[in-house]
């Protein structure tokens, strides 16, 4: 189940609001399952300005490199070094130890307009059961 206190994008990223104007971001369980075993991560350096729905990094899984998008606009405060060293954490625990970056929000209203967990659950359910190949 997708955590209740998180917010979600239709591109399958999550945002976890924290105190102040901060948040953690990552990819959802659906996203990591679709990607398969993650082997490399490139994340933006601290102080990098990221924009909502624009590229913030790259991720390699099973011989495929995909772009990572930021779910919010803001300044990167830190990235998850443990996940960079052990990208399988993103598969194993996408909402916890597999978080990607902590960001200082530039526009708090962006978070409000993201999906809540009920809306995201419905989106994923609507994508249908993918045959497990």
């Amino acid at each position: 189940m997708n955590p209740k206190e998180y917010k979600y994008t239709k591109e399958h990223e999550w945002v976890r609001p924290e105190s102040g104007n901060r948040c953690k971001v990552g990819i959802t369980s659906y996203a990591q399952h679709q990607l398969g075993d993650i082997v490399f991560l490139e994340l933006p350096a601290p102080e990098t300005q990221v924009k909502q729905f624009e590229k913030m990094g790259e991720i390699e899984s099973v011989k495929a490199v995909s772009d990572l998008f930021s779910p919010v606009t803001g300044k990167v405060l830190e990235t998850n070094g443990a996940a960079i060293d052990k990208p399988e954490l993103v598969n194993e625990d996408p909402y916890g130890k597999g978080w990607l970056a902590r960001i200082e929000l530039g526009r708090i209203s962006e978070v409000d307009s993201l999906m809540n967990s009920d809306e995201y659950d419905r989106l994923v359910a609507g994508l249908g059961e993918q045959p497990s190949e």
Partner: peptide, 11 residues
């Protein structure tokens, strides 16, 4: 195609 990356490689 409603495909995930993993499923695409499989195909």
């Amino acid at each position: 195609g409603r495909l995930g990356v993993r499923q695409y490689i499989w195909r």
